[in-house]
Design a protein around this nucleic acid. Sequence first.
DNA 1: GTTGAGCGTT
Length: 427
Amino acid sequence: MDSDQGKLFIGGISWDTSEDKLKEYFSKYGEVVQTVIMRDKVTGRPRGFGFVVFADPSILDRVLQDKHTIDGRTVEAKRALSREEQQTSSRSGNPNAGRSVGGAGNVRTKKIFVGGLPPTLTEEGFRQYFETYGHVTDVVVMYDQTTQRPRGFGFISFDTEEAVDRVLHKTFHELNGKLVEVKRALPKDANPGGGNRQMGGGSFQGYGGSGPNTNTYDGRMEATRYMQPQTAGGGFPAYGSSGYGAPGYGYGAAGNGVGYGGYGVGYGGASAGYAGAAGAYGNPNAPNAGYVSGPPGAPRSPWSNQAPSGYGSAGYGANAGYGAAAPWNAPGVGGATGGYGVVGGRSSGAPNSIAGAGGEQQGTGGGYMGSGYGDANGNPGYPNAAWRSDASQAGSYGAAQANGPPSGQVGYGGGYGSAQSRQAQQQ
DNA sequence: GTTGAGCGTT
């Protein structure tokens, strides 16, 4: 519940009540960042409920004590439930697993998804606003292909991660009088659907490429603080809060001795659910790692309340090999020199969409992971709904991405956090 | 009428 921060669910709203009216009404309590009334997707008719987001979460207490009548109807205000919380079932493993996926993928793009664009906004206006944050390399405002109507969202790309971070520092930006919401764009080529063919060139983002700098750890290192809890298994989850920048897995070093996923064997996780990819520096305890609870003060995003809570989730996968090493030049072998395998990794991604995944233990005891499973099913955790999750903003831990390098066999396993694994196998 | 939409183009 506390993950909802300043968001209230408002039920029983009259069909005559508009978002503006909601906002006007609730503004008497404090600054309202946004209001939304949910409508039926096809008929457009209001569904009778909506959400109000206050800038200051502490305002909720007062609002919750009052009765509210808007447009003649008594509405009910409750704290918004996150999706996880809505699921009475509660039994499925780690609900966050999949959610972080989106964030994971996002880590590497310098593109920002911008939602809530006013229909009147032009690309120029869009660009001009964002240029104050850095050099804009691309601007896209989406229009319906057939009706040509603005779809209310678009993309903005920068040439540096820093600019992106500056923009993402706050979720809502005021643009031409309305608020727009920003999130990391999901990488288009992340192939949510299934296309397996990606990256011909073996380019998986970041690999190597970004090498040294590109800000390996991007700002939000505050996460480090969360590295302490759980000494044992814990460790790394912290990385990543939003992405451990990853461009290079550089982390290892980083510190604390924790190991996390180094390069791993390429089996991209996949079906089995191992997200992680073992790796060189795998931390044997990893499996627990994910569970650090979420950062208390994680940034709030009205849209993704789930986030802050999160277990780090998933990803950590299996850590397998101890020692191992053998990055990619390792012959087809699963890298892991020494190690063998996966020790009980957990599935990371794929919470919902893939059976068996969602956080269940997979212990394979010593799986040997031989040469990489490239497993075509990679992508376990890439449910379509990925965008909802957005770990990056949420502060959830990062996400890993297990990709196979060009060689096909070795992968880099990143991480903790949920993962998005993709198999590399392109050959 | 009571718990959430949206992710691309060249």
